[in-house]
Design a protein around this nucleic acid. Structure first.
Length: 104
DNA sequence: ATTATGACTGCAG
DNA sequence: TCTGCAGCCATAA
């Protein structure tokens, strides 16, 4: 088994992110037992299941890691704002919305 | 097998 | 704020 396990572990973590919270790629990688594999998380997100709350995953700068002019980026931002996450200057205040890995 | 690319990140200039 | 670079690793060609 190669990447399947990693992807599975990643998806499992993403599924635990509560609404109204966000997590960074690096954070998810770490929680999934894959320290420093942030890039792998990004790759996994690129082809994640539809049921996955992929919109709650953003980069370490609090920004959406997708072309700002793309429809996906807008969908992501809209869904987050819909959950109560506010954007300031095009980015999210991680010190406030970052998920700590806690259960809900 | 090798090279290039990408929804990453942290550090340096 | 922005650019560049070194780690990272699955895919594609």
């Amino acid at each position: 088994m190669s990447s399947s396990n990693s992807h599975k572990a990643i998806f499992r973590i993403v599924r635990r992110i509560p609404a109204g919270r966000v997590a960074t790629y690096g954070q998810i990688a770490e929680l999934a037992g894959l320290p420093r594999r942030a890039r792998l998380v990004g790759y996994a997100m690129h082809r994640c299941p539809k049921n996955l709350p992929w919109h709650r995953v953003i980069n370490a700068q609090g920004r959406i890691s997708l072309p700002a002019d793309g429809t996906s980026a807008m969908t992501q931002r809209r869904r987050l704002e819909d959950e109560g996450v506010t954007f300031i200057g095009g980015r999210v205040d991680l010190s406030r919305y970052r998920w700590g890995g806690e259960s809900t």
